[in-house]
Design a protein around this nucleic acid. Structure first.
Lengths: 295, 295
DNA sequence: CTTCCCCTTCGTACGGTGTATTTGCACCGT
DNA sequence: ACGGTGCAAATACACCGTACGAAGGGGAAG
């Protein structure tokens, strides 16, 4: 009784199919029948059937109802990669907060503990997700030779990954425990470091330069993770929480406590995410240029 | 039975005191007596007594045991400020993860829901904590007139606040919902913006400059929140998780997949937090200097 | 071929979280 | 004295990550 009702219904139907009570081609109970049988709302019954459909157990036959699929794909065996992929999809679609082990397992049609066969704990799952997502960043070989285009490219590659996966930056910088050591992260640092090969910088300073740059990109992403998610959801940020924040902000400004800020902000519309990135990136690279004695 | 054992013991003793079964000056059961009475470990019994001591119900009399305090301070009425202060102390001492409403309430000797009289939900509590902690940042008036020392000062003030309160950056940048609008934050931006008054920068650009700088400081703090906490806990980072990370890192380096990184890292010891801050700060300010046409 | 045992696998359940809802009590107007 | 009435706080709920142990299957031994 601890699961959502539609999952219990789906599980029971799945049982009947595997037990042979319902054979391929046979009609599965209609939504209306399920409503009567389980005493649930239409929406719940429909959700159960569509979940089964997505998992390939049944298919909808127009005009005739829903029938058991011919080749019950019983188990797409669910390896570690498939698990990680499913977790990424879920986090992309509904945010990191929605990614719970139970939720993930339910989506895959298995029990919660089945996931622990492929992964020791949630933290490791997050680590794997981050490794895959960050690994998507494309770093051309050999890539630009001179330092500035090369670092620019590296920063943009990270930024794209963060934009594609709003949960990535929070995991990378802040995953409740210390930031994880990832192959994909090291690859990025390695690739970036080659930008500084020609310069006379000491090794320690080279590291600091890359760390500062990467840290800045990550910081920007994490501090805007919410907005990135919001943009991705709807294309428009139309959120009522944002409106509440704006109201609070204007109240503060009207209070007269922050005259300089008020003066500067009047008539300035919001700075977009990508614009903020481009602006900051230029500042970062300029700072490095000064260090290198160019300007 | 849902509370920790030592809390149940403390609650029972508190009941006996308020009920008059134990009078001021009278001896309260010793830890050994509590062990017999409740069938718990010595540590648990001692914890119960010390919790009562901290709340002012009892005091330890050397050589004679623990006695009921003369003036039972029954209720320090617990206003909103006291609640926020207690939350800050708890988070400082044990980290953000340890800050649960139940834990906080237990420390104050009240029930969990009693907190909701002063605060609508946990999120608002976090917001209040952040506002207080960030408000501690000292910004002298009038402060430096020229832009570079002024921005440097602002950045350092933030950094100090983050170092003092490791949980601050995670709340500010990443508090599960969008970053909060705080009076203390606006004050900081306002103070910083005055650094750019003389420059010919457009208002929009001024904002971007400050946002980039502040975002960088926050990003550095959030990505090192774990280490800041660890340093604060013991002075030494001696953590076994860190050792595991180091082992993983050296395995990656030995694998030969990251030749440039390996070459750069050999013989370079860890970069300290404050050193990373100082290095990055110089880069940030250099970048702004270029924007301003100085170099 | 049977039997036993071990090892994999996963359902149940525990101890925790934030907070909605209900409960019981103190207070106040009649 | 008594019957609302409002509110502080205990109880209850829905959810989390995962420890634990039962159940099942597969391989070795007889």
């Amino acid at each position: 009784m601890t699961e959502a009702p539609y999952l219990r219904i789906a599980a029971e139907l799945r049982r009947r199919i595997t037990a042979g009570e319902l054979r391929p081609g046979e009609r599965v109970p209609s939504t209306r029948a399920l409503v009567r049988e389980w005493g649930v709302a239409m929406a719940t019954a429909a959700k159960a059937l569509s979940a089964l459909g997505e998992q390939g157990w049944v298919r909808a036959v127009p005009g005739s109802g829903t029938v058991v699929a011919d080749r019950t794909p019983v188990k797409p065996p669910l390896g570690r990669d498939a698990l990680v992929r499913a977790a990424i999809d879920l986090a992309d679609a509904e945010g990191l907060a929605a990614l719970s082990m139970r939720r993930l397992a339910a989506g895959l049609g298995v029990g919660p503990m089945a996931l622990y066969r492929h992964v020791p704990d949630k933290e490791e799952l997050l680590r794997l997700m981050a490794d895959v997502a960050l690994g998507e960043a494309e770093l051309p070989e050999p890539g630009p030779a001179s330092w500035r285009p090369r670092l620019e490219l590296a920063a943009r590659a990270q930024w794209r990954a963060y934009r594609r996966h709003p949960w990535l930056a929070p995991i990378l910088l802040n995953s409740l425990v210390r930031p994880p050591v990832l192959a994909a992260g090291l690859r990025l640092v390695d690739w970036s470091l080659r930008a500084l090969a020609g310069t006379g910088l000491k090794r320690r300073v080279k590291l600091q330069v890359i760390m500062t740059l990467n840290g800045w990109v990550g910081g920007l992403a994490v501090s805007n993770a919410f907005e990135i998610q919001a943009e991705q959801d709807t294309g428009i940020t139309g959120d009522q929480r944002l409106e509440a924040d704006m109201a609070l902000l204007t109240r503060f400004l009207d209070s007269g406590r922050f005259p300089t800020l008020t003066e500067v902000m009047t008539g300035v519309e919001d700075v977009g995410l990508d614009e903020a990135f481009e602006f900051g990136l230029r500042r970062q690279l300029d700072g490095i240029a000064v260090l290198l004695g160019e300007h």
